[in-house]
Amino acid sequence: MALQKVLVIDADRCTGCRQCELVCSYEHEGVYAPTLSRIRLVKFEDRCLNVPVVCGFCDKPPCEDVCPTGAMGQRAGQPYAVVREENCIGCKECVHACPLGAVAMHPRKGVAMRCDLCQGDPACVKVCAPGALRYEPLDAAVRQKRRARVVALGVLRSPEEEEC
């Protein structure tokens, strides 16, 4: 089921401030603890590259396919998947299956942990100052990228001049 909105990652804008990790862990666990965050930052310091890693909400999710108990799946009526912790046995198949590396094990509960979009109002997006995280319809995200590419190729002066 395609999502109306997607969580868009722009690693180029990410400054590595980790506010997303802190607010995510606070929202879900009540503490500021990056290891309890569903979004995780990966730094490649020698490349000056910071990459926020979070669930991509695949239409054909490998994490759901490999889950032996059906714990990883969508709840009826909701467009995104959650970990049904009561069914999770902590086998880590989803951790290995995710092509983005977006699933981890909850260090205390021993169950899988992944982004649940904060019920449709993702907290990480709200605190991301550089705008590396956006939550927007896929159409808008693709259009913006397309425009940026065209600018980069030198066809247009800047995206701001075009408003159609």
Partner: peptide, 24 residues
């Protein structure tokens, strides 16, 4: 341990998707 493994997986895949590409 699961924690170390998840970190390694995350790093490998972040590199493949974001770092290892020439123009983005």
């Amino acid at each position: 341990t699961s924690g170390a493994v998840a970190t390694q997986i995350r790093r490998e895949r972040a590199w493949r998707l974001h770092g290892a590409q020439p123009y983005g």
